[in-house]
Nucleic acid binder design. Structure first.
Lengths: 345, 345
DNA sequence: TCAAGGGGCTAATACGAATTAGTTCAGGAA
DNA sequence: TTCCTGAACTAATTCGTATTAGCCCCTTGA
């Protein structure tokens, strides 16, 4: 009714109840302990006025003064929601939201930076990252320089996905691709395969490098042959599946471990259509995009939801200075599908 | 390098260059126009110092002074991400994010309220709604009392989905279900149907009431018969599809308009399996859940993404006091599927 | 020689909450 | 009566930036 009314402040509450702004602040923060004493009467008077007016502390002012506001920032280099990435981000966000709810934090999606060339800029003029107590960074790859700067400026953050040091250890919650890949190799070996190959880059971004390393180490320790077929370029899907298949067969390879799910699916389908026995395991999560196959692929189940939730945990530990691991690798479950079978089948 | 260094402030820059903090602020905001004059020399001195130190304005302080934070709250009664609702909310969020990005706003997901009985409480002790400059409310139904309170407290908000007045007009961006339903009825009539029926509640929450009204009015104005089959209870799917079909046939109905997509699908499939000719149109969006059918249903395409985007527009207009509609109904496209056909087919 | 009129800058204050160093007052001890 | 102590508050300051009123000095015109 009283159009364009200013927001209610502690000062207003103070005037209403005849106390000082400081008292209101003390009541709000439940500071009756130790050195600060407040009468129950005053406390209730203030509390009543707060309830009446529906007062809420301005998070901005609060953050300026107290250095925290129970807001967790979520930064994604790509838009969070738009369709292409939604399947990718969604499970992480489920976990993040869940844990944020448990902790009573709100989530600030940093959408204010326009997407340029398909990526958002983490640092730009007005760095909104500081709006939140700390942030979670989400993205297939994260700019190394950005990480270094975050560390240097001591902005609390946690990366989802393992990251190499960037002028210091990067807090992260990642998936243990190396271990999972090694496990797949062991299974293949146990099924009689002794000539394996890795299809993918196996290098570059940490998540690929980890898989590649897992493969190489497992192959070495099992004492079997481990070949390598690289895609045309980083991030590119394998174009010439036929060439890969031919090369693999020529090298006597009987089991292929594919970095990208789609590549593995394509290879397996081609082999099957040719009537060739080739085992294929995939180091990615079966996605809807690659669903036309009815076959259940041997692949990985990445604990995305748990990763999201734990990222929030690590972040709060970081903010509050609680001890604990700042780097966590969660195990990936190996989905035992039908595509990794006994040698010769 | 110099661990735990305080962040650089305008004050620091000022000291370095021998000017005042105010001058630094003026330079930063490019305020050389109009009433404020700065010499090119001073400007450059300051700019140089800024470049050297890598100074960036603290967004928090900036907002505090500016009295608004360019944060848009997004409140959902149910968790945003968890799977069951994700298909429902997702398209809206795509639109919201998109528009927020255009406007340079961040999105605050209100996740701090624990979900009780599957719903979040909009109003509770510390009302985080005021964290944002304004908020968007999302949900199939929204508590009437909540709306009234929001209006009374003059908290800027926009509802996604039309809402009846709640002690005043509620700002909303909704889908024009009434018009779309009427259009479907007209198409049915044009195809020779003169005995139609509505399957659903056609009352209660605005979105259903609008559909029901659209049906009744269109049927009346076309001068044809319009029956009504209600589900067992509000929100319940129709249990006894067979009973509905029998009743419809007994009443000589040749075309049914179903409020819920799933109900329509079930009815159509049953009729087809019995070899009975029955046209069915659906007043919902074809969802993945009801996909087992290969038939393309005559149904509605709800402009969810546009609704999200426009909600942001309305909200900012509201916040900034710009003139413009506070209530918008966007047209729904009628998907001409195969299930609404000429009478007798 | 003085007022008027800028240009160029600064002091002061606001923004809203948190925090610290007091201050006031009542009651008890000396 | 004075001193002390603790309870219950408050005044003042801080956080970093934006903004406004106004100051000082140098021209210019009369």
């Amino acid at each position: 009714m009283t159009g364009a009314r200013r927001r209610v402040t502690q000062q207003d509450i103070a005037r209403m109840t005849g106390v000082s702004q400081a008292t209101v602040s003390l009541v709000l923060n439940g500071r009756s302990d130790a050195d600060v004493k407040l009468s129950a009467e005053t406390r209730e008077k203030v509390l009543r006025a707060i309830a009446e007016t529906g007062y809420v502390a301005d998070p901005i002012a609060r953050r300026l003064a107290a250095r925290h506001n129970r807001i967790i920032g979520v930064f994604t280099y790509e838009p969070v929601f738009p369709s292409a990435n939604s399947d990718f981000y969604h499970p992480f966000l489920v976990g993040i939201e869940q844990q944020a709810e448990v902790l009573g934090c709100d989530l600030l999606l940093m959408t204010s930076t326009p997407v340029v060339d398909g990526r958002r800029r983490l640092f730009q003029g007005d760095n909104r990252l500081r709006l939140a107590d700390g942030s979670i960074l989400l993205g297939r790859t994260i700019d190394r320089a950005d990480l270094a700067r975050l560390l240097a400026e001591e902005i609390p953050f946690v990366s989802i996905g393992r990251r190499d040091d960037a002028g210091g250890p990067v807090p992260y919650v990642g998936a243990d691709y190396a271990a999972a890949t090694a496990e797949i190799v062991r299974r293949a070996v146990a099924l009689g395969h002794d000539r394996l190959a890795y299809l993918g880059l196996g290098a570059g971004p940490e998540s690929w490098a980890d898989r590649g390393r897992g493969f190489r180490e497992a192959v070495a320790s099992a004492g079997v042959y481990g070949g390598h077929f690289a895609p045309p370029a980083e991030g590119e899907p394998v174009r010439d599946t036929a060439a890969v298949l031919d090369a693999a067969l020529a090298a006597g390879v009987t089991a292929v471990v594919a970095e990208e799910h789609a590549d593995g699916v394509a290879l397996f389908e081609l082999a099957r259509s040719r009537g060739v026995a080739l085992s294929v395991a995939t180091l990615g999560e079966p996605t809807r995009a690659a669903l036309p196959t009815a076959v259940e692929f041997t692949s990985l189940r990445i604990p995305r939801q748990a990763m999201g939730a734990q990222a929030v945990e690590v972040l709060t530990a970081l903010i509050e200075g609680t001890p604990g691991d700042r780097q966590r690798l969660l195990p990936c479950e190996v989905v035992s599908g039908e595509t990794l079978s006994e040698r010769g089948n």
